[in-house]
Amino acid sequence: SSMEISFAGKRALVTGAGKGIGRATALALARCGAKVVAVTRTQADLNSLVQECASITPVCVDLADWEATEAALQDVGPIDLLVNNAGCAILKPFLEVTPDQFDQLFNVNVKAVLHVSQILARGMKARGSGGSIVNVSSQASQCAVRDHAVYCATKGALDMLTKVMALELGPYKIRVNSVNPTVVMTDMGRLGWSDPKKAQTMMSRIPLGQFAEVDDVVNSILFLLSDKSNMTNGVTLPVDGGFLAC
């Protein structure tokens, strides 16, 4: 059909590619013909990913480490498509948040996105062939969630980073957008929402009456990476069943 998405001839890099949304995105991009570089900090996850899809190039690095990231990504070659998916969540009541937790979340959820994007967008700009970047944000960027003070703050920051990147990189035909899912049924999602009462309270506020599946998010990422979204730049796309609408 006319909406078939192909990434043949494109090179993609996905962070946080070992698990959850990142892993599914890396595999989907490979299925759509892209050459995929998968970045994550857990070697075992990379090993199983490459076993599942031999064409994927693994890079093991902790993105919270600025110097290590610089070194790990300097030789990945030209990248056309970037998915900044790596993220972490530490849930704490507001009054109990520690400086270490604050720094850990901002380092991974915001600073590493800035850094990885700088490295790869420099190459996109120099080659003059454009590109597309998708940042994986959250409905938590726009809606307060108990015990998520720092997490919500990082995602609010990420949404504004997305918009400024779109503004400054747009002239080089590099588009930058984010996807903002509600609770997604990954291991990380189950961790935060395993309490049935808490889950029910959240789900009751979603008009479609369900949490997101990984594929719902992956399909939105593929759309934003592809030329089917050529005029979409600087948006935060909710994948939330209508949660933010009401």
Rank of each mutant, 00 (worst) to 15 (best):
Q104I: 00
G234R: 01
A89L: 11
V61G: 07
C88T: 14
L13T: 12
S226G: 10
F102S: 01
V110M: 00
V164Q: 15
A38H: 08
P207K: 07
D62K: 00
N47R: 12
E4L: 10
T57Q: 14
A24E: 14
F223W: 15
L191F: 08
K125F: 06
V36I: 06
A89V: 09
V14W: 09
M231D: 02
G130S: 12
Q104G: 01
A24I: 05
I21C: 07
Q74N: 13
I221E: 10
Y151T: 06
W193I: 03
T15Y: 01
R122A: 09
P207Q: 11
G16M: 06
L82E: 05
G242F: 05
M3G: 11
M185Y: 02
K155C: 11
H148D: 04
W66K: 13
L224H: 09
S132H: 09
S229P: 06
L208W: 12
V145W: 08
K173H: 15
N85C: 07
S138D: 08
A68W: 02
V235L: 02
H148N: 10
L191H: 03
S1E: 11
V61R: 02
E96A: 12
G131S: 04
K197P: 06
A153G: 01
L81E: 11
L208E: 10
M203S: 08
K92D: 15
V179F: 07
T154M: 01
A17F: 05
A71I: 12
I90T: 11
G128M: 08
A34K: 02
N230Q: 14
D45Q: 13
D227N: 14
A166I: 08
V39S: 09
V136Y: 06
D159T: 14
I90S: 00
K92Q: 15
S138Y: 05
Q43R: 14
I79H: 03
D227C: 05
S2T: 15
V150H: 00
T232G: 06
F102I: 11
V113D: 08
D187M: 03
V164N: 14
F7V: 12
E213V: 09
G192T: 02
G77A: 08
W66E: 08
N230K: 15
L191I: 05
Q210A: 14
K173G: 11
M202H: 11
G22W: 03
T201I: 15
G33L: 04
V134M: 04
K92F: 03
L169F: 13
N177K: 10
L91V: 05
L167D: 15
G189W: 00
M203K: 15
N180T: 13
S117G: 05
V110S: 01
G9M: 08
G77N: 02
A245K: 13
T15D: 07
V183N: 10
G170A: 09
K19A: 11
K228I: 00
S6L: 04
T98V: 00
G123T: 12
L225V: 10
I119H: 03
G241Y: 03
Q101S: 12
D187G: 03
